[in-house]
């Protein structure tokens, strides 16, 4: 589904991604871990199409399409979703309103009929239940004054609404209490099918207790320096990153 080859990206003069290779197949869950500042969010942003980053080399293919050639909205319409590490606050734009616009523009791009108000509301109610989010929150200005946990839940609500093929969750677990973590994980698991895939960026094993990954990768200094199964996450939890840094230094 997603194939990243030798991806290198920079912002300004600073190169942040130094040749990333990653294959994600339908039905898989990949966890990306790694120390602060190693480039995890940068990778997520580049995949979602943030223009501030300049791709200097490499290829990204998503379902046979060259992802890097596409505008962010076209990537979303093709089925890529990014749950932001730091969701943006937009005063005056409510989640409900902009989700309606988003859903309908996506449907239109696929040659489908837009949803009328009633069907939209029905779907919305379902998805709200899935992530246990209150409508009053969705009526408010997007993320403005939301608590950290509310912002993250709102991201998953949006993901549920858009039903992406590939969801990239950038530290969706940070700032969540245990109950919220379970709810979010439950929401993600509910949306998992054989035909979609998830990349979870996280620092903690506790999320991976609920969303069990097929593969775990360690990103360090803009490169994937180690890949393994879910056991790798447990090992990292126990030992930290020093041993990996040492391995990299030796190599």
């Amino acid at each position: 589904m997603l194939s990243i080859k030798n991806l290198q990206a920079k912002i300004g003069d600073k190169q942040i991604l130094n040749g990333i290779n990653l294959e994600v197949k339908a039905g898989e869950v990949h966890a990306i871990m790694g120390p602060n500042g190693s480039g995890k969010s940068t990778l997520a942003s580049v995949l979602a199409g943030r223009e501030d980053y300049e791709v200097v080399q490499g290829e990204v293919e998503f379902q046979g399409q060259n992802l890097l050639d596409m505008a962010p909205e076209d990537r979303a319409r093709a089925g890529v979703f990014l749950a932001f590490q730091y969701p943006v606050e937009i005063p005056g734009v409510s989640t409900i309103n902009f989700m309606k616009t988003a859903v309908n523009q996506i449907l239109k791009s696929r040659g489908q009929q837009p949803l009328d108000a009633v069907s939209f509301l029905k779907i919305m109610k379902e998805k709200m239940k899935l992530v246990d989010i209150d409508q009053s929150l969705l009526n408010r200005s997007l993320n403005e004054g939301f608590s950290g946990g509310e912002k993250k839940r709102n991201e998953i609500f949006q993901m549920a609404m858009l039903e992406p093929k590939l969801a990239i969750l950038d530290e969706t677990d940070s700032g969540l209490d245990i109950d919220a973590l379970k709810i979010v994980a439950h929401g993600v698991n509910k949306l998992r099918t054989k035909s979609n895939a998830v990349i979870v960026v996280t620092h903690y094993q506790r999320l991976l207790d609920y969303i069990i990954p097929d593969f775990v990768h360690v990103l360090y200094k803009g490169k994937i320096v180690k890949s393994g199964t879910k056991d790798l996450a447990l090992e990292l939890e126990a030992k930290g990153y020093d041993w990996i840094k040492d391995e990299v230094a030796v190599a």
Partner: peptide
């Protein structure tokens, strides 16, 4: 960018 990543 945020709004665009939602398909808008």
């Amino acid at each position: 960018f945020y709004l665009q990543t939602r398909g808008i």
